[in-house]
Amino acid sequence: MPAGTLYRGREGMWSWVAHRVTGVLIFFFLFVHVLDTALVRVSPEAYDKVVATYKTPIVACLEYGLVAAILFHALNGLRIIAVDFWAKGPRYQKQMLWTVVGVWVVLMVGALYPVLGHAVRELFGS
């Protein structure tokens, strides 16, 4: 570790870094998502056309990444609230982070088929 840095590594710092990165990514997607949804006020065709890109295999992978970012940000956000408001939160922050990672892995495995299933069928036939 370089001298004179505030960054301490380990679970505390890296969960903070991941929370920032996922938060910024989600926020940028949110701009795009409000804009594409606004096309329902332009015409049904315009909306259906742009939603069609959401159904392509490549964007399906991006959606899986979006789900990954949102689930981590949501679960780690609950951990942050526990650290802030639960008297024993700071003492168990590491255990809570590994709980978050565990729940995240389970949910990501669960999201595999619903989010990517149609892309697999499109690529390799049903």
Partner: peptide, 11 residues
């Protein structure tokens, strides 16, 4: 993204 056919039903 999950229920009722996921993203393919959206329009």
């Amino acid at each position: 993204l999950v229920l009722d056919g996921g993203v393919s039903k959206i329009g």
